[in-house]
Design a protein around this nucleic acid. Structure first.
Length: 573
RNA sequence: CGGAGCGUAGCUCAGCCUGGCUAGAGCACUUGCUUUGGGAGCAAGACGUCGCAGGUUCGAAUCCUGUCGCUCCGACCA
């Protein structure tokens, strides 16, 4: 490709609406342009890299035995009603109505469609296992699109769906995808690691996310360097000890705490109650019903865990106006010892099990109870792991110290079970002629997000540094003069032709620009290898080869191709 | 949706507080000359309904109200 023939609108300054580095680089290097919030046009260079990521994904999916299909973006709403997700996923669904008034959803994912397909086409265990995937646009009415391609309203996703006869088969399918994902992200040239994950609204019971470490990521990942444990903080547990039991004290005793409405205030004079001897009482509205949640004073409730444990679709903190009529006191004096309405469930964090000598609110403004023995004095309906792990806690597996870091979620694998196959009647006949629901898994990769994650990780002060595997062009040839008949241009054309014949993606910067401009742009766009041809070196029969991440080499023109083949890893071929 | 901020040239921004002649700068763009190994110099030129709608005023980019859009923090997710 000749530079002047394509469109590479590089920017000296980043547009003001880009906040994070990778978003700025996407815009500055001329890879994308915004049409509206969360909606982007891919320019020629951005599309080339996108296609390369797609191709890596396609190759690894095929290698893992998945077969490619293409499902409609326009999905009839009734299959969503049938699966129940018209309600549970309603906030992210783009809804459209056709001229006859029929409702459609723009595909945010395709479990309903593929399961409908499987219901019709898969009848026998002899056809199993099967794994179908597609690569294409997805639409999600994100409440807040963010950071360019990171969270967009329209994005490119690879989604795959496996169908098995048995749970063991489904686990095997799951692990094939898991292994394929590892290969995919490695081939894309990004550091990545799988973590245990919550399953969210998609459902299912076993799940891993693939993370790219980055400070601008939207996820906190808990990990142990010693044993390799890693989990999304929404899911993570630790080996932190339960609350130490003390001698069972006297009966519960009420005491005045005027003006004390925080855990912190109660730790001070004159009360001196350590946070770890307090019970924090929270009121949440879980699927529109109030629920009381107890965690230790020094712990934080994990809302994702709350939803996972209760199977809730929606959970939010209750407002003061909802709490006062319920418990008779304002937040800060809440407890579960007395005045708890019979129909309000009390959920407690496992860390409190067996705790005694605790202090908690008295459900009376300005008063607390002490000597509370949780199992004696509070009617706990359910015990769950509800707390959020913090850095420094011991690993549940090996006891070493847990750390936390930020990361970008680029892929997610779920074991779905029979949730969708049951609702959409996707069954098969087994060897004995019995009808069983297909056991499913689903597997997503955010292609556009992966592209941005690569940029977020591969850059320096001058711009992007593309890994060879996903670079829009692997080599940029920069003749310092493009005057017709100039030997620099002739040499450039020669190398260009030779590389092209080898199947290398190469771009020739044929712009009549000053060398500085060309060098700056080549660095900004981040081509892995630049070949510069200037008159002085050429007079000595030399050209200049500069890896984006490396130092300049002057090479005899006749040896240039050999050196380039070496740098491109083509010698084995 | 809750909180915060921003909408002036293709891009980055100044001007607004304290209303007043024809609305500015840098970069980018066009033409010419010079320059030619890390975002050149000089000269000339083109580019704006100051997001939109209403209001206040002799007069509004500037003050007020509404509205739309964008960005950031929170809830959601590939």
């Amino acid at each position: 490709m000749k530079w002047t023939q394509t469109l590479i609108p590089t920017l000296r300054e980043a547009p003001a609406d880009a906040e994070i580095l990778s978003h700025k680089l996407l815009l500055r290097a001329g890879l994308i342009r915004k049409l509206a919030g969360g909606v982007y046009t891919f320019l020629p260079l951005g599309l080339r890299s996108l296609r390369k990521v797609e191709q890596i994904v396609r190759e690894e999916m095929n290698r893992a035995g998945a077969v490619e299909v293409l499902m409609p973006l326009l999905q009839p709403s009734d299959i969503w009603e049938q699966s129940g997700r018209a309600e549970t996923a309603k906030d992210v669904l783009f809804k459209v109505k056709d001229s006859s008034g029929r409702h459609w959803f723009l595909s945010p994912t395709a479990e309903e469609v593929i399961t409908t397909l499987a219901a019709g086409e898969i009848n026998s265990y002899r056809q199993l296992p099967k794994n179908f995937y597609q690569i294409g646009s997805k639409f999600r009415d994100e409440i807040r699109p963010r950071f360019g391609l990171m969270r967009a309203k329209e994005f490119i996703m690879k989604d795959a769906y496996s169908f098995d006869a048995t749970d063991e088969g489904a686990m095997a399918s799951y692990h094939k995808m898991y292994d394929a994902y590892k290969r995919i992200f490695d081939r894309c040239g990004v550091q990545n690691f799988p973590v245990e994950a919550d399953t969210g609204v998609i459902g299912g019971n076993y799940s891993h996310e693939f993370m790219v470490p980055a400070d601008t990521g939207e996820n906190d990942v808990v990990f142990c360097e010693a044993c390799g444990y890693a989990a999304n903080i929404e899911k993570a547990t630790s080996g932190i000890p339960k609350t130490a039991a003390r001698e069972v004290g006297a009966a519960v005793e009420k005491f005045a705490t005027p003006g004390v409405v925080t855990i912190e205030a109660l730790t001070k004079e004159p009360y001196k109650v350590a946070a770890n001897r307090q019970i924090k009482t929270l009121v949440y509205i879980v699927d529109s019903k109030p629920v009381i949640i107890l965690v230790r004073g020094d712990d934080q409730l994990n809302e994702t865990k709350l939803m996972a444990r209760t199977g809730a679709v929606a959970a939010r903190p209750a407002t003061v106006d909802e709490i006062v009529p319920l418990l008779g006191a304002k937040p800060g004096s809440l407890g579960a010892v007395v005045n708890v309405p019979a129909d309000v469930k009390v959920l407690a964090d496992e860390r409190l099990r067996g705790a005694n000598d605790m202090t908690t609110g008295a459900n009376e403004d300005g008063f607390h109870f002490r000597n509370v023995s949780i199992e004696r004095d509070i009617k706990v309906a359910e015990w769950h792991d509800l707390r959020t792990v913090t850095a420094g806690e011991p690993c549940a597996k090996c006891g070493k110290t847990l750390k936390i870091r930020r990361a970008i979620e680029v892929g997610h694998v779920f074991k779905l079970g029979t949730k969708y196959s049951e609702k959409l009647n996707a069954n098969y006949l087994d060897e004995s002629g019995a009808r069983n629901p297909l056991v499913m898994g689903c597997y997503g990769i955010g292609i556009t997000r992966t592209l941005q994650a690569i940029i977020e990780q591969c850059n320096d002060k001058d711009g992007i540094i593309w890994p060879l595997s996903v670079a829009p062009y692997q080599v940029c040839i920069t003749p310092l003069s493009v005057a017709a008949g100039n030997p620099c241009l002739q040499q450039a054309e020669k190398i260009y032709a030779e590389l092209t014949a080898l199947g290398v993606d190469v771009i020739l910067d044929d712009r009549d620009e000053r060398p500085g401009v060309k060098f700056k742009d080549a660095d900004l766009v981040g081509f892995p290898i630049r070949v510069s041809i200037g008159e002085k070196a050429l007079a000595k029969g030399e050209v200049e080869i500069k890896p984006r991440r490396g130092t300049v080499e002057f090479v005899k023109a006749e040896n240039a191709m050999a050196r380039l083949r070496e740098l491109l890893g083509l010698n084995a071929a």
